[in-house]
């Protein structure tokens, strides 16, 4: 992109006129020139926010924010209404339980830690299972990463403040993590982020979270 094209794109992003797909791509683009142009546009247009009259938020909203912060299973992108969230969570548990019942009907192993990560359309996308002290990831509905981007897998044990990278996800979608690199535990957060080639340049995720879920013992396992 030429500098003028970058400015145009950043301006339309900040103005809000980009369509959903384009807006997501711009927000996730690691190009420093584009991100700097966005920051300039935000600063330029910020005074327009004064045209929106302040209004008191509903009582109880802070409590809801605090609850979400305490249990960060949230991909805010996925929820449209308060009541959808419990339904989403219940749906995810039901999918997980159903899959567990299907996968482990015959043998009777120790309680199985697992989770199913859902897509933005609430379709099961990834199955994450604790296995032999390590973790195994399988794509349920393989989708290639967008051109020029990679998917990176992370784990965040409950109580930890920074996630640990478990590496990049190959196009096959199948990943096995050796027991030494991760200690699966109930409540461990598993997330997949969109990153520049080679993965996040930082020890933490740099791109948006595409999929997220918590390990739990599957009922009946």
């Amino acid at each position: 992109m030429t500098p003028d094209e970058i400015e145009d794109l950043a301006g339309e992003y900040v103005l809000g006129t980009l369509e959903a797909g384009a807006a997501r791509a711009v927000a996730a683009d690691p190009d420093p020139a584009l991100q700097a142009a966005i920051a300039r546009w935000e600063a330029r247009l910020a005074p327009l926010s004064a045209l929106a009259p302040p209004a008191p938020p509903p009582p109880g909203l802070w409590a809801r924010i605090e609850a979400s912060l305490a249990a960060p299973v949230v991909v805010p992108l996925q929820r449209t209404r308060n009541w959808l969230w419990p339904a989403w969570a219940a749906g995810a548990s039901a999918v997980a339980a159903g899959l567990a019942a299907f996968l482990w009907l015959q043998p009777a192993p120790a309680p199985q830690l697992m989770t199913v990560l859902l897509s933005r359309q609430d379709q099961p996308a990834w199955l994450v299972q604790a296995e032999g002290g390590g973790l195994r990831l399988a794509a349920l509905n393989p989708q290639p990463a967008p051109e020029g981007r990679v998917l990176q897998l992370w784990a965040l044990p409950q109580g930890a403040t920074a996630p640990t990278s478990l590496g990049l996800i190959p196009p096959s979608g199948a990943v096995s993590i050796a027991p030494g690199r991760v200690a699966p535990s109930p409540g461990m957060l598993i997330e997949i982020t969109l990153e520049p080639p080679g993965g996040s340049p930082n020890p933490r995720p740099s791109g948006p979270i595409l999929f997220i879920g918590r390990l739990a013992a599957a009922a009946g396992s």
Binding site: L51, P57, L61, R79, T80
Partner: peptide
């Protein structure tokens, strides 16, 4: 001002604060 619906605006503030 963007959403013109108090429930949706509350969702936005929630997501925004996270």
């Amino acid at each position: 001002a963007l959403l013109r619906d108090r429930d949706r605006a509350a969702d936005a503030l929630h997501d925004g604060f996270l």
